[in-house]
């Protein structure tokens, strides 16, 4: 074989070897950061997020029937965030498509969700690694979340308020 061909084969092999390594690294990278990139966009698209710290209890319009209308984050990175409880369920986790995205090492991708059934909001833990806690109790089966009861996921706590 000519000198040039050998050189090309030689260099080609090293390039391929490193492409192999970088394709492995790209998998790990997607694993670590990919969802975060998505989450920023998704966060911006959630229509009913109001970032107004200290505004808790400032909406006195529909308090009469003591129905929970919003989720208020009371502790963690997103303290003060409010999400209106408009739909029938609300997902919580690190995944970018969650309704409440918790950017927290101790939260799982699909960590827990709130489901509205028979006029009550239930919290269900989706087999998360570190658990979901309702008033300090670990949630193993779906539990009713009463008004102002503290729910903790990782380092984030939130309550349902009227």
């Amino acid at each position: 074989m000519s000198e040039l061909a050998l050189f090309l084969v030689r260099t080609g092999f090293l390039v391929l070897l490193w492409i192999f390594i970088f394709s492995i690294i790209s998998v790990i990278r997607a694993d670590l950061f990919g969802q975060k990139v998505v989450s920023r966009v998704a966060q911006a698209n959630v229509p009913a997020v109001f970032s107004s710290p200290g505004a808790a209890g400032a909406t006195p319009t529909q308090q009469l029937d003591q129905k929970a209308t919003k989720l208020v984050v009371t502790g963690g990175d997103k303290v003060g965030t409010e999400i209106a409880l408009s739909g029938r369920q609300l997902s919580i986790g690190r995944a970018g498509d969650s309704d409440l995205i918790v950017d927290d090492e101790y939260a799982s991708t699909h960590h827990a969700k709130l489901v509205f059934i028979n006029g009550e909001w239930l919290i269900q833990d989706l087999d998360s690694t570190n658990g979901t806690f309702l008033e300090g109790q670990k949630v193993s089966t779906p539990q009713t979340v009463s008004m102002n009861a503290a729910v903790r996921i990782g380092q984030t706590t939130f309550e349902l308020r009227a």
Partner: peptide
């Protein structure tokens, strides 16, 4: 039953593993 409903919803969002194809 609220519990079975909740469980059914939870099944829906489970992601199918793509790791083996990778």
């Amino acid at each position: 039953n609220p519990l079975t409903e909740a469980l059914q919803i939870s099944k829906l969002i489970k992601v199918v593993p793509r790791s083996r194809n990778l």
